[in-house]
Design a protein around this nucleic acid. Structure first.
Length: 365
DNA sequence: AAACTTTTAAATGCGCAGTC
DNA sequence: GACTGCGCATTTAAAAGTTT
C-alpha cells in the first residue's frame, strides 16, 4: 500500500481534467480499479503501472518514489548559515501548526487555479481581473493572498543569508506556504509575496523554491532561471498596474519629468519597493536610463522621511522585528480553535503574542 | 432560496482466476 | 488456504437541474 502512488495518480488525472472512467478507458482498466489505486488501497501490476506512466508521459518511478521531504531539500541548499537554518526549521513548525489549526477549525482553503500562461503580464492581468481589482493598487497583499490559498509567514532572516522568500507546497495536504523575510522593507515584502504567489499559481508542483534578493536587480535578471524572471515580472505587474501609473502621471503630474520625490510618492501609493517602482517607470519610459541609474543609487528612506513625514509604520518597526509575524487569519484561526476549546489559553497566547490573562479577561472568563 | 429530482462520478462489497 | 490483480454490480455522495 502506497499513499504516494494514489496522490500522484489523482493529481495527474485531475490536472488533465478527466474522470476516473476516462482514464480507465484510456489505459484499458476499470474505473473502480482506478478508484482503488487513487485511494491507495491497491497496487497496480508492473504492466498496469507502465501503462499508467505512459499515459501521463511520466517515468514509472514518478509514481513510486516517495519524494524527499520538502524541508530536507530546502535545508540542503548550499550557503545556508546557522541562523537561516534555524529560521527555516521554525518555518516548518509554523506551517505544521497553521495546518493543524485549519484542521481543528475545519477552515481549509482550497488551492487556487493553476495557470500555464506564456506571458507573466497576461497572467497578472487575468489574476487581477479574477479578484476584481481593475487597475487599483492592492492595499493588503498578505491577507489577499492568504484568502486565495497561499499561507504567509513572515520571519526575520539575517540579510547576509541572502534569502528573501521561500515557497513550498505540501503535496499531500495540498497547502501552499510562503515565507517572507521580514527584515526587508514592507514594499520589498509585498513584492516577494506577489512573487511567491506566482510560484504558487504556476510552479507549485515543481518542488520548493528559495528566492534570493538578487532577482530584483534587473540588469542581471536574465541570468536567472526563467521561472524567476517570469515570477518577478508577474509580481511587479500584479502590484503596479501600468494603466494606473499612466493615469496618475497624465492626470496629476501632467506628464512632467519625474523627480525622485514623485517616484517615492508613487512607490507609497502602490505600496511597493522603490526599486520596483523605478523599474516600472523606466520600462514605461517615464524615466530615462540615466535618471533611473541616478535614482537607483539613492537610499529612499531618509528622503521618504523628509518628504512625507515618516516611513510606513511597518518599516520603522521592522528594524526591531525579532520573531515571526503571524497573519491575521492565523490569529483568527487560533482564536476560533480556543473558543471551541480545541487549544489551550497558553497556546493561544503564543499565537497572539499577548499575555494569556489579558486575553482571558477580554474574552470574559 | 429552499426542497425535491435527476445525472454523474467515485467508493465499496463481493467474487473469480491465478499464484505461492 | 491465503493473497493479489482485477471486473461486475451496487451504494454513496456530489453536482446539476427543476419546481415551488
Amino acid at each position: 500500500m502506497s499513499a504516494i502512488l494514489g496522490t500522484r495518480l489523482r493529481r495527474e488525472r485531475e490536472e488533465l481534467g478527466i474522470t476516473q472512467d476516462a482514464l480507465a478507458k484510456g489505459v484499458g482498466l476499470s474505473s473502480e480499479f482506478i478508484s482503488l489505486l487513487e485511494l491507495g488501497k491497491r497496487m497496480p501490476s508492473l504492466e498496469t503501472l507502465t501503462a499508467l506512466a505512459d499515459y501521463f508521459r511520466k517515468d514509472v518511478s514518478y509514481f513510486l518514489k516517495e519524494k524527499e521531504e520538502t524541508f530536507k531539500i530546502i535545508l540542503r541548499a548550499e550557503g545556508l548559515d546557522e541562523k537561516a537554518r534555524a529560521e527555516i526549521k521554525k518555518f516548518k513548525k509554523y506551517c505544521e501548526e497553521y495546518m493543524h489549526l485549519e484542521e481543528l477549525t475545519g477552515r481549509r482553503l482550497e488551492p487556487g487555479p493553476i495557470y500555464a500562461y506564456v506571458s507573466p503580464e497576461r497572467m497578472a492581468d487575468e489574476e487581477r481581473r479574477r479578484m476584481g481589482f481593475g487597475d487599483e493598487p492592492i492595499r493588503d497583499i498578505f491577507s489577499l493572498l492568504e484568502l486565495n490559498g497561499l499561507h504567509i509567514l513572515r520571519q526575520p532572516i539575517p540579510e547576509k543569508s541572502n534569502i528573501s522568500g521561500i515557497f513550498i507546497f505540501f503535496e499531500v495536504e495540498r497547502a501552499a506556504f510562503a515565507l517572507i523575510n521580514s527584515v526587508q522593507t514592507i514594499g520589498q515584502q509585498a513584492l516577494i509575496a506577489a512573487h511567491e504567489y506566482c510560484h504558487y499559481l504556476k510552479d507549485r508542483n515543481a518542488g520548493p523554491i528559495i528566492d534570493n534578493p538578487d532577482i530584483f536587480i534587473d540588469e542581471y535578471v536574465s541570468l536567472y532561471h526563467p521561472r524567476e524572471k517570469f515570477a518577478q515580472t508577474f509580481a511587479v505587474r500584479f502590484l503596479i498596474h501600468p494603466a494606473k501609473v499612466k493615469k496618475i502621471i497624465d492626470k496629476d503630474f501632467h506628464s512632467k519629468k519625474l523627480s525622485f520625490a514623485d517616484v517615492l510618492y508613487l512607490k507609497r501609493y502602490f505600496g511597493v519597493s522603490a526599486l520596483a517602482m523605478l523599474r516600472t517607470l523606466k520600462d514605461l519610459e517615464y524615466l530615462s536610463r540615466s535618471k533611473f541609474e541616478e535614482y537607483q543609487k539613492l537610499d529612499p528612506s531618509p528622503y521618504e522621511e523628509v518628504f512625507f513625514g515618516k516611513l510606513a509604520e511597518e518599516d520603522r518597526l521592522r528594524k526591531g522585528t525579532k520573531g515571526v509575524v503571524f497573519s491575521s487569519r492565523l490569529k483568527n484561526l487560533a482564536l476560533e480553535a480556543f473558543q471551541r476549546k480545541k487549544i489551550s489559553a497558553e497556546k493561544l497566547s503564543r499565537f497572539l503574542k499577548r499575555d494569556k490573562n489579558k486575553i482571558k479577561s477580554l474574552l470574559g472568563k
